[in-house]
Design a protein around this nucleic acid. Sequence first.
DNA 1: CTAGGGTTAG
Length: 649
Amino acid sequence: MRSPEIVLKVVGVCRTTNFLTQLHSLTIRTYDTHLAAKITELYFELLPLQTARKLFDEIPHPNLYTCNRILQRFCGKNRYEEVSSLFTSMFSFEKVDHFTLLFALKACSALKATNFGKTIHGLGKKYGIIHSNMFLGSGLIDMYSKCGNMDDAFRAFEEYSKPDIVLWTTLVTGYEKNFKPEEALAVFTGMAMAHCISSDPITLVTVVSACTQLLNLKAGKSVHAHVFRMGYEGSLSLSNALLNLYAKSGSMFYAGNWFRVMEEKDVISWSCIISCCAHNDATDRAISLFDEMIYKGIEPNSVSVISALQACESCCNLNKGRQIHELAFHKSLELDKLVSTALIDMYMSCCSPQEAIIVFDRMPNKDPVSWFALLCGCVKNGMVNKSMQIFCDMMASDIQPDATVMVKILGACSELGVLQLTSCLHSYVIRGGFISNSFIGASVIDCYAKCGSLDEAIKVFERSTDKDVVIWSSMFAGYGIHGQARESIKFFHRMVTDSTVCPNKVTFLSILAACSHAGFVEEGIEFFNIMLNGYQLMPESKHYAIIVDLLARIGELDKAMCLINQMQSRVGVHVWGALLGACRIHQNAEIGEVAARNLLQLDPDHAGYYILLSNVYAVDGKWDDAAELRGSIKERELKKITGQSVVRL
DNA sequence: CTAGGGTTAG
């Protein structure tokens, strides 16, 4: 077997390294370009990168065309390390062409290797092929954009005196993908004003995406009108981009209407509308749309499954969630990390942490987000010890916790109330360099306060160099927890006079809570008014709940009721709960019934409300009503969850 | 052998 043709045929079948070594020496001797091309491909396909490069360097006359083909093949397979390595070997060539550079640029984009990209840019100039065609231009702009370097992308763009539509679009897309939607629209405007350039459907997709980022419905609509004028409504991607714009701008109405009239719909369109419904309290509609999609024979992908799972999550539809899980399993979509994480979220929100843990354990490669979902879910389900365990496992698996994880775990720790653990986490926070993050600082303060050590909380507060509104608020709350409303108020004045920090809604919530905890009725009401009139902050349900509690406690039930009637925001359970609790103390069955009826409407399965109401009846002497209520608790098989609070020093 | 686009996320 001396003929290269025969060798080539054999190469296709036999792929052992041993055989490859023999072929290599043959290739070096024969100088055959076909053989060289084929074997180059095999080196990079089968051997470790370094070995492949070494062998390739020994080949006397590799052919540019075939090397380009190999680069292209590896680009198609996303094997960019190989691309970059082979390209570097090609430096010894007398000349490479724009195809070579284009594939190399693709590798730079994927590997985010800006410096290497700049080298290629320079090579292009050296070889004088930069302006040989527009392909290299868009490749350069795209490379700089994908490396997050828009300044160089723009400079590359400026090197072309007559940019074509693709070049313009690449630049617009670069700005949009780098979260600079204003710049994207500005470039688009520049393009529209440039001579002989009119936008095409692909450009408009990006323009619509920029409008979506800006939540600029008005601009988006005018693009939509332009789409109709140009007759582009047949473009599916463009239709989907518009659908996404309507969905994201919170306009379910527009989204639904546009979805209905869209000529063609694919799985992306369906995912988009399902996600829109799931995020806008139309969970049942989201689920029925998902069913409809399946019924119509549209193959679900991970995105549609995730959106449907989110719908199940927010309406606690465990059975439907399980059904979708099964579907995802059969379609092998559970392999997608985002799907698994959505499943964990769903099971955790539907109060089935065991199933969530099973999903997590099955994940072959867990990412920080899935760890976080598991940790949050355990906290949400009251499994605080378990969440601490997860935190340890996470570090044992070499996953570095980030700021969000730290905030969550500190929250869990404050619930556990173990002071030693708090100081442990505090040291970890300092060592990890997290202490400058004000959310974490505030969590540490809160954690110390809840574990009983106000002194430590104050130390952390005084030591923090950059006290922002979050840190201050956590300190007000800390004093509040310890019943020291006086100190809390003193600190509030210190903040207002000594710093430039402006209080927000959370600040007032902390202050109000402190007043409520210490029974400072007048001060509480005064702060409520300062918030409303002094700072023009709209109180939310939680603020009202505290004020209602304060008023109701001193027996001003009518005033409290009056305040509730004035509320513009949704009246939450805490507001009615505060009122009902006070009605029991002040023996007002009339208002108590109103409060209870509203409560049971908001949360029919909460045993505590039934018991509170039955107590209201009892003190009023309405024994029959009380008995009937107690009966319905038994009927519904509701159990009162007993409260516990623990501090371990 | 070659370039620009749409849905998910704590």
